[in-house]
Design a protein around this nucleic acid. Structure first.
Lengths: 233, 233
DNA sequence: GATTTTCTAAACCTTTAGATTTAGATAAAT
DNA sequence: ATTTATCTAAATCTAAAGGTTTAGAAAATC
């Protein structure tokens, strides 16, 4: 919970100077926040954040130079408690997705009413995520599409299912980039046996060498004992 | 936009029979939706969905047997316009994340007021995503953490940056599982030159063979001309 | 009981990959 | 003007990987 006795400190980054002034005035009129810095340059913006450690950064993400997304990432990397709200003229799914992925905690359309902007700042400062419901929908649809793309390969026609359990063990070691001798050592079988298994794996996966076997495994959702623990779906 | 002359058709799946009755009554009293089917079994639930093509499925995701997440996925795979709202007793970040990833369009806590459930159904049926603001925050924090984990490897100390542009081209072909001869053919240089490049790549990436070079590249965000077009960050 | 699958292993051979050295031709940087 | 980096290429060698066949033992399936 934020301390309401302290004024929220805000930094504005927008390459359009007129816009910058407009937002600043809006904030001064509609709220009691303290605009500690404004700039039209992404790089200068990052410096302002470093210097003032503001509570909120309002950032236009449609900038030329170093673009808004990179700037979000740069600010996120600073590891401060500063929260970034992305401002954009468009409700582009991909843009929203990437902004949120890189650490933005809000996304506001420039066309939205000014009271909504103040509302967004208030919510984000309180630790919440601010996304208008249209954008939430867009975000999730994009998110699900992406997630489904990822898992699609892991499903469907999958030659990996034809592997025996021993072959799976061997393939797992192959995907770690280990050679025959070491695999033999780890599984406590002879090197020639490993070669037999590997050749059988090649035939089943329809490849001719270990690199392609590994590539096939990785792109078709091959589950290793390690990855199983960290995989989400 | 949905046709308000037609009653929304709903299927309920919850392994707790009492809960099932409770929700059904709630819907009958508070709304005019048509509960076309209820079941305590995930598998039967999938069959109900196949049979009735309901507008909405309310599904408890804390079920034993075939769990709720798998069921969401199974329903999503049917490719119907049926929208799933997940019901859960907990606001577990990971659970919310996975449910949404698998295609849920809403997530409602069982402890929430009944009017909210009706509200959720209404919103989701209208094509929106329904997530209470606390859960939105949880979801995004989990999402960002996951995304950051993924991109972390692609940043930081990265030996890939030391590669020359020609070496990058060669590495790209290596990551496609192509052998020396073909690489030489594609780049129109001799096979021995390719070997020289590959050996230099190995030294720079501190590996001893192509499999490990490929694994290093893939796990450190190596951008191929193809992947650059589809990658999100 | 017979058959199939899986895991084990060897022998034999061919091909590819990898290590190392040397070196010429440009191009860029100091 | 002279290093330095990059791209090119060859020769030579060793080690590793891959292909093929054959085969025994155990377990699962028919």
């Amino acid at each position: 919970m934020r301390d309401f006795n302290k004024k929220l400190r805000v930094v504005l980054i927008d390459d359009n100077a007129n816009h910058l002034r407009g937002i600043k005035e809006l904030i001064n009129i509609e709220s009691s926040y303290d605009v500690v810095g404004t700039t039209t340059s992404a790089n200068l913006g990052i410096n302002l954040v470093k210097k003032y450690h503001p509570d909120i950064v309002l950032m236009d993400i449609n900038m030329p130079e170093k673009d808004g997304l990179q700037t979000i990432q740069a600010i996120a990397k600073l590891g401060l408690s500063t929260k970034v709200i992305a401002l954009s003229g468009y409700d582009d799914s991909d843009l929203i997705y990437r902004a949120m992925k890189l650490g933005a905690r809000g996304y506001v359309l420039k066309t939205m009413a000014s009271v909504k902007l103040i509302n967004a700042i208030e919510e984000v400062a309180a630790g919440k995520i601010y996304l208008p419901s249209v954008l939430t929908t867009r975000f999730f649809e994009y998110f699900q599409t992406t997630a489904i793309e990822e898992t699609k390969a892991a499903e469907g026609e999958n030659l990996l299912t034809s592997l025996t359990s021993r072959e799976n063990e061997v393939l797992e070691l192959l995907t770690e980039g280990i050679n025959y001798k070491s695999i033999a050592g780890k599984l406590i079988i002879s090197e020639t046996t490993v070669k037999t298994h590997v050749n059988n794996i090649f035939q089943k996966l329809q490849v001719n060498d270990r690199t392609n076997a590994v590539l096939y495994a990785l792109s078709h959702g091959f589950k290793t004992s390690k990855s199983a623990a960290m995989t989400t779906v």
